[in-house]
Computed example of a mutant assay.
Amino acid sequence: MRTIKQQHRAISAPIADLTTYRALPTASVEHIDPFLFLNHHGPQVYRPNNNGLPFGPHPHRGFETVTFILEGDILHKDSSGHESVIEAGGIQWMTAGSGLIHAEVSSENFKKQGGPLEILQLWVNLPAKDKMTAPRYIGLQKDEIPTATLDGGVVVHAVSGQWAGTAGAVEPLADVQLAWLDFPAGASITLPIAAARSIFFYVVSGRLQVNGTETQARQLVEFNHDGDELTIAASTNSVLLLGHAQPFQEPIVSYGPFVMNTEAEIQQAYRDYQRGAFGSWKG
């Protein structure tokens, strides 16, 4: 079984009136190659006639964002012409690639009606060969994401990769496997994950044991590369965000909304954005 290198507590990092915990990066962990960043928004309840999510138009280049809408909704719009409202149980997978401008805000209905909101946004690096690929956006509702039921009633929502013989909804550029798992209290499963692969293991809610070690909500568990098995047992009803990938082992240079391999590429990204190469924004 894999041994645990360290557990990292997500830190409070509110954005306007949005409750936010940042699990990656923090003072104790910079990244888990190729996983770069995770914000956990909520859970919270918005009143009627609210302002919704505060993420107006902003640029990205060189990586992908994967957004899990557990409660509430997100209206996505970008400079490549994509627009959709994804509701609770759905996901958005955006490949920024060579660069685009996008906004992530709440729908007019959510702003008017209010309601519960909980959202996870994960940034996944792109390998150097794919950093300048054409931008892509995939928005999927709950019923478009395959599920598999494992021992004890554990439900896997398969976003990418293979999970217990079930193919994920998205075929990513790199071999990145992502899912979230719903655990009923008392359930236990064992999953094979090759020792060479990086594991992304974030407890969204509840209490779990992984390979015999206790962990809980808003904890990111970092593993050593010394085993090929995870045994996960739920002490309470729990939700787990789980991913794994072969590490790229390439230089990572990030600044604001851009993630590249060199400082020169970051400077070029700013120049390209300023000259309009990321497309025009139509509000």
Rank of each mutant, 00 (worst) to 15 (best):
A88V: 07
A27I: 06
V66W: 04
E87N: 15
G72R: 04
L53Y: 02
N51I: 09
P43E: 15
G72N: 03
L75H: 14
V45F: 05
G56M: 09
T26H: 07
V45R: 05
P48V: 05
I69R: 11
E30D: 14
E71W: 05
L53V: 03
G56S: 10
G89L: 04
V29D: 00
F68Y: 15
P48Q: 11
P48N: 10
E64P: 01
Q44E: 15
P54N: 09
H31D: 06
Y46W: 14
L53S: 03
I74N: 01
N49V: 11
I86C: 01
V85S: 01
P34D: 11
V85W: 01
N51S: 13
N50Y: 01
P48M: 08
Y46C: 00
E83A: 14
P25H: 11
G42K: 11
K77L: 01
Y46I: 00
G89Q: 05
E30L: 14
D78E: 06
S84Y: 01
P25E: 10
A88Y: 07
F35H: 03
H40E: 02
I74V: 13
H60A: 02
L75T: 06
S80Y: 08
P57R: 03
I32G: 01
I69H: 08
L70C: 02
A27K: 13
I69L: 12
F55T: 02
T65D: 05
N49D: 15
F35C: 03
Q44F: 13
T26N: 08
G52Q: 08
